[in-house]
């Protein structure tokens, strides 16, 4: 019993310490956005890595998500005789919830893991020490381009996911199930308002901040992991970063739903 309390106590302290470190990290990153010189070239590189190269999986997963949604809603709505609502059912589910969440999960899996591992290896190879000794701010030089690229890319990827998903729903609804195409789109147009779209953009923006923050900070502080070092530490923080990003993202999703709906 005593050991349990001790364990809870010590892990709480560790968590609070980590939260403090991470908060300072985020503060440094945001502060460094406004410091010169601005790495435009690095931003483009990261936009390519985070945004452009995620497009294919976003389009694929968006298409399938939309198609699955259409199948599910078709079977439910036909039983209730309200199959006319198909367009708005698919569209609202995508734009409000599944678009931001699924796009974020895809990006976390692809970008969060590799960003965390890359930064952790940079730390292990003393690359941050080298930058500091060269009087180059590592936050500005390494973190800011990734941070900006993530918060630009994820909302755009979410929008692509939404559009492709709506199109996927159209394929299933209209070509496979024989609904009227104009009805599907008209219902969608009638039911979706600025609130839903704004929510989609805000959510994806928040998710982007959360995931890139956690992934970068986990890697940056790899040397704080107790009892592991080297390659083992890198693999450990990478796993932790992906899990923590996904959970924090879903938690933020719940919070934003309860605030915004």
């Amino acid at each position: 019993m005593f050991r349990l309390i001790k364990l809870i106590g010590s892990s709480t302290i560790l968590f609070v310490e980590e939260l403090g470190r991470f908060t300072d990290f985020l503060y440094q990153v945001i502060k460094s956005i406004f410091s010169r010189p601005f790495g435009g070239r690095d931003l483009i590189k990261q936009l390519e890595f985070i945004g452009a190269r995620s497009m294919s999986i976003i389009i694929l997963s968006g298409l399938f998500t939309g198609m699955v949604l259409a199948l599910l809603f078709y079977s439910v709505l036909t039983r209730l005789g309200s199959v006319d609502l198909m367009g708005s059912a698919v569209g609202l589910s995508l734009i409000q919830e599944l678009g931001p969440v699924m796009a974020a999960i895809m990006v976390i899996a692809r970008v969060g893991s590799s960003t965390c591992a890359e930064i952790a290896i940079m730390r292990n190879e003393q690359q941050f020490d080298a930058l500091t000794c060269m009087a180059v701010n590592p936050y500005r030089f390494v973190m800011v381009p990734r941070f900006l690229a993530a918060i630009i890319s994820v909302p755009l990827l979410t929008a692509i996911f939404n559009v492709v998903g709506i199109f996927g729903g159209y394929i299933v609804g209209v070509y496979l199930k024989g609904l009227s195409g104009t009805l599907y789109l008209q219902n969608l147009i009638d039911k979706i308002g600025w609130e839903e779209l704004r929510m989609s953009v805000i959510k994806s923006f928040v998710f982007a901040v959360i995931f890139i923050w956690i992934s970068m900070a986990k890697g940056f502080f790899v040397h704080f992991e107790k009892g592991v070092s080297g390659a083992e530490a890198v693999s450990l923080v990478t796993t932790k970063a992906v899990v923590a990003s996904a959970i924090a993202m879903l938690f933020a999703d719940y919070i934003s739903n309860s605030f915004l709906i």
């Binding site: 890359e118 690359q127 020490d129 080298a130 000794c133």
Partner: peptide, 13 residues
Amino acid sequence: MGVAFQGGALLSS
């Protein structure tokens, strides 16, 4: 000041 690190610490990117 210049610092030469053990493994070079060149930026891998």
